[in-house]
């Protein structure tokens, strides 16, 4: 038993080390005064200063944020509707086609999705730019959003909605007062995932964007192809910090919620025991 434990710990530590090593290296070297990766030239924040002075990079970051916000919002709404259709409306005509359309983009190589959407935009003569990227990202991320929300809805007790209606709440109001608040964590997770995927995407954006709408990954990619630069290290570190703070916050929030529930459950079971004693005595 003991040997098994040690083995497990080693496996996990090695695996996690593999996952985190590159990120840690990146963060450390973003503070390196030297331009060379192999030489530690002392602690410095000069690359961060350079980064924020880099106007094209900043502009690209702003574009990416706009695209991510718009497409994630659209994808969350559409994904919620799609999940409702899949979970709630049983078998409808074209259901399997619909399911196929949801799952195919999840595994489809990005180059194909990007190329296909570009060909569509060109053939209808749409002006390419920010909006075409938003549409492209919505298409991809709405499928991820659907899968996340669908999983939550599948385990949702329909009796809750029936109870609300039974108590006089009309169906549409029931959705907003009962269903939506209860699937909110999944909807939130779907939005976050859609946002991150959009912020992260290089390939689809490269195909579908137009003049004046260069995204952050595109800018980073074009610089990276020229070699490792400390400035990009700094940009990456900022992005990582951004994500880490966001995830940390949501983790703390859900954790405290869970702990609250755990305590409550303990209390409840104590009550139950007391109640039983009372019954036995009476």
């Amino acid at each position: 038993m003991h040997r098994g434990n040690a083995f497990r710990t080693v496996v996990l530590l090695l695996g996690l080390g593999f996952l985190y090593l590159p990120i840690v290296v990146l963060v450390i070297y973003s503070f390196n005064a030297s331009r060379l990766v192999t030489v530690w030239g002392g602690f410095s924040i000069q690359w961060y200063v350079a980064l924020f002075a880099n106007a094209p990079l900043m502009e690209a970051a702003w574009t990416s944020l706009k695209i991510a916000t718009l497409s994630a919002s659209l994808a969350t709404v559409l994904g919620t509707l799609a999940a409702l259709a899949l979970v709630r409306h049983g078998r409808f005509g074209g259901r399997s086609l619909f399911t196929g359309l949801i799952y195919a983009p999840l595994v489809m190589p990005e180059v194909i999705v990007g190329l296909a959407l570009l060909l569509l935009f060109v053939s209808v003569g749409a002006d390419r730019g920010l909006w075409t990227v938003v549409v492209a990202h919505t298409t991809l991320t709405l499928c991820f959003a659907t899968v996340i929300i669908q999983a939550r809805l599948a385990s949702f007790d329909r009796a809750l909605e029936e109870a609300a209606m039974d108590l006089g709440c009309p169906p549409a109001k029931t959705f907003f007062t009962i269903t939506l608040p209860l699937i909110a964590p999944a909807v939130g997770a779907a939005f976050l995932l859609a946002f991150t995927l959009s912020l992260d995407d290089l390939v689809i954006a490269s195909f579908t964007t137009g003049p004046g709408a260069t995204t952050l990954p595109m800018r980073i990619y074009s610089q990276v192809r020229l070699g490792v630069t400390p400035e990009i290290n700094a940009a990456c570190t900022v992005l990582i910090a951004f994500v880490a703070v966001g995830l940390g916050l949501s983790f703390i929030l859900t954790r405290s919620g869970a702990r609250h529930r755990d305590e409550a459950a303990g209390e409840a079971s104590a009550d139950a025991v007391a109640e039983r004693h009372a019954e036995v005595r009476s």
Partner: peptide, 16 residues
């Protein structure tokens, strides 16, 4: 359902 003058106690209780 929401306009009927009957109310139900659900098996799972369905408490919000």
């Amino acid at each position: 359902p929401h306009l009927r003058p009957v109310n139900m106690m659900f098996q799972s209780y369905a408490l919000f």
